[in-house]
Design a protein around this nucleic acid. Structure first.
Lengths: 131, 131
DNA sequence: GTAGAACCTAGAGCCGACTCTAAGGCAAAC
DNA sequence: GTTTGCCTTAGAGTCGGCTCTAGGTTCTAC
């Protein structure tokens, strides 16, 4: 039915065709990609969906080896849900930690922005206390 | 007065001595580091403070060239506060954008965690709706 | 005075994640 | 029939940010 070319999948996922081939080599695809007459890759909608998940995981900083591991678990089928859950939970913790770290840094940056705004008379008051 | 060795600064900042020398080459130090008798670097408390800022900026994802630029502005002294403010504001926007992105991804991950917890009977209810 | 730790420089190496190149195949449009 | 454009592979190159090596000097403790 569907049957998408690598270029179409690139457009839909926001990944480049180079990256799509690279991800495939890296084992990030849940199913092996079908090949058309001329050896061209033929993707299904499922692949696009899965790649969407991969993109989100990457965007949240999950390293490729971890995504591969998760992919392998999914590919292996039912029975390893506990392991999948562990991978996801660990990653969630890392994301939360990263967000806390960003929030910490944000405080410093926001403070400095306020200080400079004060110095430039863009603000009425300049507390400029401690750190 | 103080006068700290590179090793001491490494300990205080959490950076390695390698990284400290690297950062210096990259122009991330607000003042040139003094050298002791044998050519050894002698840092001041100010340097540690400044490096602390650099560490926070790095932790929030500011690229080294941007930190260098900001450092140069600080080094140049008064009169360029508007430019410093611009650098900081731009970076703050990027940090906020990054946090929003992480939050987006977090939603997916949390949803998947909930789904697997449900499947494993670790939860009473499993909504498992849309995405 | 000698062992071991800490320092110096210049420059090479590494890692993750792409990103691109070269050389070529096939198919539709003109 | 050739140009255009999308596809193929294997493998090389890039980039940011460290991280380490080699070869040498100097400080600290015993």
């Amino acid at each position: 039915m569907s049957g998408l070319s690598i270029g179409q999948v690139a457009e839909r996922t926001g990944l480049s065709v180079h990256t799509l081939r690279f991800y495939e080599r890296e084992g990030l695809l849940a199913q092996p990609v079908r090949r058309g007459a001329a050896g061209h890759r033929v993707y299904e909608e499922d692949d696009v969906d899965w790649l969407g998940v991969c993109v989100r995981l990457r965007a949240s900083g999950m390293p490729l080896p971890d995504i591969r591991r998760y992919t392998e678990l999914v590919r292996a089928g039912q029975g390893n849900e506990a392991e999948r859950l562990e991978v996801l939970r660990e990653h969630r913790e890392r994301v939360l930690a990263r967000m806390r770290e960003l929030d910490e840094s944000l405080k410093l940056i926001t403070h400095k922005v306020a200080v400079y705004e004060g110095r430039l008379g863009l603000r009425d008051e300049v507390p400029d206390c401690a750190p």
